[in-house]
């Protein structure tokens, strides 16, 4: 015990909340921050918008019969001669920006979530194996993790894509390679703490199979840090994919994610046609902020050290 005088305060609210299940408690803790709720609502809206893009978008931006080159580079709010209003303007090919953004959001989210999911799967398995088996396996995995993490994600992705070439699958692969180490490190750290606890010992003495101990006993207890990393990483993956696509080494032009839309607008920026890259960027920014707000709050409520 330290000489801290806040100690009576920490104990105070505890007894009142004894009966509530941990999930309920976490949930109510999450909703304590207005900012986090705003983030969550925003995120849900963004996901819905991306899911239902074909229904929501005024046009299918990749159906050439629906776009008109005569309508190119129109500012926000302009009207085409057919009477259609381009709320966010049009791009260099005369595509409605709003439609382009909705479709682009879809691609960005899919790439981000897919790569995040596989990275989580691979990374967590590696981390848990490292913690459970120890010894050489652990040394090998952790050396790999250290090596990976000592180089910035963008550099690793850049090199991989330089080697692999362009394509959705290649971008996802690069993003997985870039991300898995974070999950591995976090899950190993949590598992090492858990491993020393008695219930793992007793599970072992019951001669439960190794995978069973890892996945039924270790994994659930390592989830909190993994979840926190997961949210942050999906945001990072989306941003990284956009960056790579912007640089021209990410997704091919046939899969126009937000990054590619922004990149297209770059050419028009200097002539003052800001909207072509501004609005896709705004969509990207809002998505990332929403995820980060949720992630921030998750980290606060799942972190035992910061519980107030």
């Amino acid at each position: 015990m330290s000489a801290s005088q806040t100690e009576p305060l920490a104990a105070a609210p505890a007894p009142a909340k004894k009966a509530i299940s941990p999930w309920r408690r976490l949930l109510s803790a999450f909703f304590e921050s207005k900012l986090a709720v705003v983030g969550l609502v925003g995120l849900v809206l963004i996901i819905l918008a991306a899911l239902f893009a074909p229904l929501l978008a005024p046009q299918n931006p990749y159906d050439l019969t629906q776009i008109d080159i005569m309508d190119s580079k129109l500012p926000p709010g302009a009207e085409s001669y057919t009477g259609m209003i381009y709320v966010l303007g049009t791009d260099g090919q005369g595509r409605d920006m709003l439609s382009g953004i909705l479709y682009g959001l879809r691609i960005s989210l899919i790439v981000g979530v897919l790569s995040g999911f596989f990275a989580l799967l691979i990374g967590t398995s590696m981390g848990l194996s490292a913690a459970y088996f120890g010894g050489r396996v652990e040394t090998l995995i952790m050396r790999l993790v250290d090596l990976q993490l000592s180089f910035p994600a963008i550099l690793v992705a850049l090199i991989l894509l330089a080697i692999l070439g362009r394509g959705v699958d290649k971008v996802i692969l690069a993003l997985i390679v870039v991300q898995w180490a974070y999950y591995a490190r976090a899950s190993r750290g949590a598992a090492l703490v858990e491993r020393r606890k008695e219930y793992i010992e007793s599970a072992r003495s019951l001669a439960l199979s190794t995978p069973r101990i890892i996945f039924r006993h270790l994994l659930p207890n390592c989830l909190p840090p993994v979840i926190v990393i997961g949210t942050v990483q999906v945001a990072n993956a989306i941003a990284l994919e956009a960056t790579l696509s912007f640089l021209g080494i990410g997704l091919p032009v046939t899969e126009p994610s937000l990054g590619l839309l922004i990149s297209n607008g770059f050419n028009y920026l200097l002539s003052g046609r800001y909207w072509i890259s501004f609005f896709p960027g705004l969509a990207l920014l809002l998505t990332i902020i929403a995820i980060n707000l949720v992630g921030d709050q998750l980290r606060d409520i799942l972190n035992p050290r910061l519980q107030r």
């Binding site: 015990m1 000489a3 005088q5 806040t6 100690e7 009576p8 104990a11």
Partner: peptide, 17 residues
């Protein structure tokens, strides 16, 4: 612990957080 003895000490020091 929690009886207020430490806080009394900090009060005298003018160091109540």
């Amino acid at each position: 612990s929690g009886s207020g003895k430490s806080v009394s000490g900090f009060s005298i020091m003018g160091l109540v957080d």
